[in-house]
Amino acid sequence: MRHDPPSRPPRGPRPPGESRPWDRSGVRSRQERFSERTAQVQRPRDDDSLHEHQHEHEHDANHALRERRSAELRLYGLNAIQAVFSRRPQAIRKLYLAEARIPALQPLLKWCVANRVGYRVVDELDLHKLAASSHHEGIVADVLREEPQPMSSWLRDLPAGPQCAIWLDGVGNPHNFGAILRSAAHFGIAAILLPKHSTLALSGAAARVAEGGAEAVPLVRMGRSDNAIAQLRSAGFTLAATVVQGGSDAFRTELPQRLVYVLGAEGEGMDRELAQACDLRLSIPGSGLVESLNVASAAAVLLAAWRAKR
């Protein structure tokens, strides 16, 4: 006689008070769920996350380094660095020099020691590398960059009486810029005026060519050209566009007490609209054997012409 196993009762709502055994093979306990969540929280980042975190850290460090470097300027040349020491010694951050320069630089070295500014005696090859030039004259320094001042601040503090300034429109060659700064310092010029979007800035090469003139002549950042012209005229300045041909003789023209020479780029010359907006157009007469002087030489001649009439 065959006995069939009893059939499993159908599932349905349990009567009150009745319990039913459960198959727990697919069910996680509260402790198991808690342990799994804890493991997920404590699990280390995967390689991509670690790489991303490291990349962000490196980006921040590089950004800080770029900011520090942009705030500093590497100068070289004896007169350029001595000028910084004389006018704003607190701007000096680090100094490198040849051993032969030690006797002549005793005041600067004593100041460095007293103010905990590091200096190092290095050989000639190291100075070449630091300056990226052979014209270092035995000394290289990292100094804080002095940013151009706003036009309004410069005009506010400008003394009354005769004043001359140079507006550089598109000039970019650092050696020409340095030569202009040297001439401007020699003739006691009030400022170099830089257009709003000009990328021209003092470099080590320009400062060396200026032979200390970079510390003597302020750089002034203008706003929009039409506003700058209006501000200058309100302060009593006459603007003179310098042109190769077609201008009045710079030596024979009566030059005003307060004058701004507007000098154009080395190759392209001055912006046409800017030239038309000026009050005077001046040319430097010559033999005609060459087309013109370069911008730095022209600046020196024009500044001398203005100074001669004072």
Rank of each mutant, 00 (worst) to 15 (best):
R2E: 14
D4G: 10
P5G: 10
P5I: 07
S7R: 10
P10W: 00
P10L: 05
P13V: 07
P13F: 05
R14L: 15
P16H: 06
G17D: 11
E18T: 13
R24S: 08
V27D: 08
R28Y: 10
R28A: 12
S29A: 10
S29P: 09
R30I: 13
Q31S: 14
R33T: 09
R33N: 11
E36D: 13
R37P: 08
Q42M: 13
P44S: 08
P44D: 08
R45C: 11
D47E: 15
D47L: 15
D47R: 14
D48W: 14
R69I: 09
R69Y: 09
A71E: 13
Y76S: 06
G77P: 02
L78Y: 07
A80P: 07
Q82H: 09
Q82P: 00
A83R: 01
F85Q: 10
S86F: 05
S86V: 04
R87Q: 15
I92V: 15
L95P: 01
E99R: 06
I102S: 06
A104R: 06
A104I: 03
P107I: 07
P107V: 06
L108H: 02
L108W: 01
K110A: 14
W111V: 08
N115S: 07
N115I: 01
V117D: 04
G118V: 07
V121M: 03
L127Y: 09
L127V: 12
L127M: 09
K129E: 15
A141T: 06
E147Y: 01
Q149H: 02
M151A: 12
L155G: 08
L155H: 05
D157Q: 12
Q163Y: 01
C164D: 02
I166S: 00
D169W: 01
N173K: 04
G178A: 05
G178M: 03
L181G: 00
R182A: 03
S183C: 07
A185N: 04
A185K: 03
G188F: 10
L194P: 03
L194K: 02
A201R: 12
A201P: 00
A201V: 08
L202S: 04
S203V: 10
A205F: 02
A206D: 03
A207K: 00
V209A: 09
A210C: 06
G213F: 00
E215L: 02
A216N: 02
A216C: 05
A216M: 07
P218C: 08
L219R: 11
L219F: 12
V220D: 00
D226L: 06
A230P: 01
R233C: 04
G236W: 04
F237H: 01
L239N: 04
A240P: 12
A240R: 04
T242S: 08
G246S: 11
S248C: 11
D249R: 07
A250K: 02
R252H: 15
T253G: 11
P256T: 05
V260W: 02
A265G: 12
D271C: 13
R272Y: 13
R272G: 12
R272S: 15
L282G: 11
P285H: 14
P285A: 14
P285W: 15
G286Q: 11
G286A: 14
S297N: 12
V301N: 01
A304V: 00
W306F: 05
R307S: 07
K309C: 05
K309I: 02
